[in-house]
Design a binder for these strands. Structure first.
Lengths: 166, 166
DNA sequence: TATTGTTATACTCTATAACTATA
DNA sequence: TATAGTTATAGAGTATAACAATA
């Protein structure tokens, strides 16, 4: 279909000239700064790991499985804070990439235990090395003290409230 | 379809007991801290604004239009770093909500100029107030100094490299 | 020829609901 | 009854390609 016909409506509201580039609501806003940082981090991630690499979410899942060998899908879903249905696709993909395997869980035939395969362990080792490079790149504008400060502040920000409100 | 039949494969790899909760690659990683902070920020956003509110991305677009009255869709797409096709849906939605309007751009009949409607201005005023509450909630674990430090560090991190690499 | 807005299409991520097998 | 894994489905969000109108 053709583009909508522009309505002839250009009246005297042209007073609203832009004065600054960063809007008031967003300028100096912590939420907005975090969002931009996250977008930036993802860009660098794919620059570091390549466009065809494992996604950040799947790398997180792979790492959790590595450090919690034998974890069930439900437990993994809880840790990653996604639904049980959602974890199926993650596990399916990691299994299709031959990085992990599902094994029957002893004592509960409803569940699987998840384990890294040997190729999965090799891949994770490589990913760990790449992660170091990525982390260096991500923090390249910061010195060591600033980098640690930043992590500390982020973790403090998301920590559960110690002074619960009434 | 029924669940896949678990393969009887539980051999002696049960040695891989989880030792710690946070995997090595992710523990102390800046990229991971940013991601978790972002997820946390979105959760609080919807808690503050309500589940049926304007999305963060659309709030950003609305604010940009407010502060750059008359901006074209292409220019807005560039500022938001999304595709021209993508901006159409954003603008369509904001227009359907009666928050903005498209007007014919003087001197270029291919383009629209985007403006907030009067209800859009009212809504943005309300959103600005809510944003303040949200920002306070988001930083409730930080004092003022820490909050400013955090923003400063995030902006420093994403700032373009001053020492370009060869 | 190039640009603006649009549509068609597709892919990722994630969620809910309903189902089977098992507890 | 409850839980684990699965499927079907749907809704955001985003992208590319192709197109009409216009520059």
């Amino acid at each position: 279909m053709a583009p909508r016909e522009p309505q002839p409506d250009e009246k005297g509201t042209s007073s609203g000239q832009a004065t600054q580039d960063l809007p008031d609501i967003l300028n100096g806003a912590l939420g907005y700064a975090i969002k931009r940082a996250q977008v930036h981090a993802y860009e660098l991630f794919y620059k570091s790991f390549g466009q065809d690499t494992i996604s950040p979410a799947r790398l997180t899942a792979l790492t959790f499985i590595s450090n919690n060998a034998g974890i069930t899908q439900s437990a993994l879903a809880q840790k990653l804070n996604i639904s049980r249905a959602g974890i199926v696709k993650v596990v399916d993909r990691l299994e299709a990439m031959n990085l992990i395997e599902r094994r029957a869980k002893k004592g509960d035939r409803r569940s699987y235990s998840l384990y890294l395969t040997e190729p999965g362990k090799d891949e994770l080792s490589w990913l760990a090395k790449q992660t170091q490079k990525y982390e260096t790149l991500l923090a390249s504008n910061l010195n060591d003290t600033e980098r640690e400060q930043l992590i500390t502040l982020l973790e403090k920000m998301i920590s559960p409230d110690t002074q619960p409100q009434t």
